[in-house]
Design a protein around this nucleic acid. Structure first.
Length: 349
DNA sequence: CTTCTCACA
DNA sequence: TGTGAGCA
């Protein structure tokens, strides 16, 4: 297929296609003699993905990085579509928030019968901060790289400080706290290799899960094909509103900063049915005082490894999560499971 | 019909 | 982040 054919098919100009090649997003084969580009079906999917991601506002450079890690995964068409879906959801969630903010601005102007620039500015800024908080996330753990060893890593007996001590027991506690009834549908947020989701599957529950790492999802599909898996992020769960009876999440929130955790809680709320419940098990401190006291303690003991791990991972401020859950309309209960792992049970009022 | 480069917004 | 002109 020549450049004009594919351009017509995808409704873009040949010039733009060459431009994407120049930027390193595609590498079409060139015929030896003429120097003409020849495009395969795979190239079509890839370009379609590029176009969609551009349409939802993703910069060229980001698309390039995304497609690069994507390249090594197999089953291209499905992966391209999943990438597109994931970003459609993030765009959708973002638009919902912008609409809500605009509504609030309109209400304010109507009510006050005059424009208060400061307040309107505040509202507009809130959107910007939200986007920044969300865009700040990076996968410092490189899950695509470690996906095939992940289960081994978390269950290995470790010398000294072990963040994943009692891993399986804690997952069992989460299942117990959710107390799922057969036929219910649940979501495992940040499902990874599906260790939590598969427990629910065994109880006759319909499970969905999402993760930001395609490689982790491959492991999950291999181990537990019954889990519906989607590519997606904690800032835009790839699901519609009111989809689930419960959301469960374990050892995932600590990959987010505290601000990002709050966004994630709002997403939990969004996908839950009325009366739905949320169970979180993760690394936490009771509150900031507890955090600082504990860090001081470790410093005095010379526990450098534990200290650096805690500082490196984003142990949650439990009190802040609870406050946010309350304002989102949840009633909550808490239980401390191990030295660092706490369990939060929450139910929509 | 395609290639590439250069200038332009 | 692309586009159009001009050339080979």
């Amino acid at each position: 297929m020549q450049i004009k054919d594919i351009a017509r098919r995808l409704h873009i100009t040949p010039r733009a296609i060459r431009f994407y090649e120049e930027k390193g997003l595609i590498q079409p084969k060139k015929a030896d003699e003429s120097g003409y580009r020849h495009f395969s079906e795979e190239d079509v999917w890839r370009l379609q993905t590029i176009i969609t991601l551009r349409e939802v506002g993703m910069p060229i450079e980001d698309i390039r990085e995304l497609l690069q890690e994507q390249n090594e995964a197999e089953g291209s068409l499905l992966h391209y579509l999943e990438l597109q879906r994931s970003f459609m959801y993030s765009r959708w969630v973002e638009m919902s928030k912008v609409i809500a903010t605009t509504e609030a601005m309109i209400e304010r102007v109507k009510r006050d019968q005059q424009i208060d620039p400061g307040a309107l500015y505040e509202l507009a800024e809130a959107n910007k901060r939200l986007r920044q908080t969300r865009d700040n996330w990076v996968d410092r753990w490189n899950f695509n790289q470690i996906a095939d060893q992940y289960d081994e890593l978390v269950t290995r007996e470790q010398e000294g400080f072990n963040t994943h001590a009692f891993y399986h027991e804690i997952l069992d506690q989460v299942v117990g706290a959710v107390a799922p009834k057969p036929g219910e549908s649940g979501l495992d947020a940040g499902t990874g290799t599906g260790n939590l989701a598969s427990r629910f599957i065994q109880m006759g529950v319909q499970m969905s899960g999402f993760d930001q790492s395609p490689q982790m999802l491959l492991q999950c599909r291999r181990k537990s094909p019954e889990v519906e898996t989607k590519l997606g992020t904690f800032f835009a769960f790839p699901f519609l509103e009111n989809d689930f009876d419960f959301v469960a999440t374990s050892y995932a929130l600590h990959h987010l900063t505290d601000d990002q955790k709050l966004l994630a809680l709002a997403e939990c709320r969004r996908v839950l049915k009325p009366g739905g419940r949320l169970v979180i098990a993760d690394l936490m401190f009771v509150d900031q005082d507890h955090r600082h006291a504990h860090l001081d303690h470790l410093r005095r003991q010379g526990e450098e490894e534990a200290l650096s791990q805690i500082l490196d991972r984003c142990y949650a401020d439990r009190s802040r999560l609870l406050a946010e859950l309350d304002s989102l309309g949840f009633v909550t209960e808490v239980r401390q499971l191990t030295e660092y792992v706490h369990l939060i049970w929450a139910k929509l009022r």
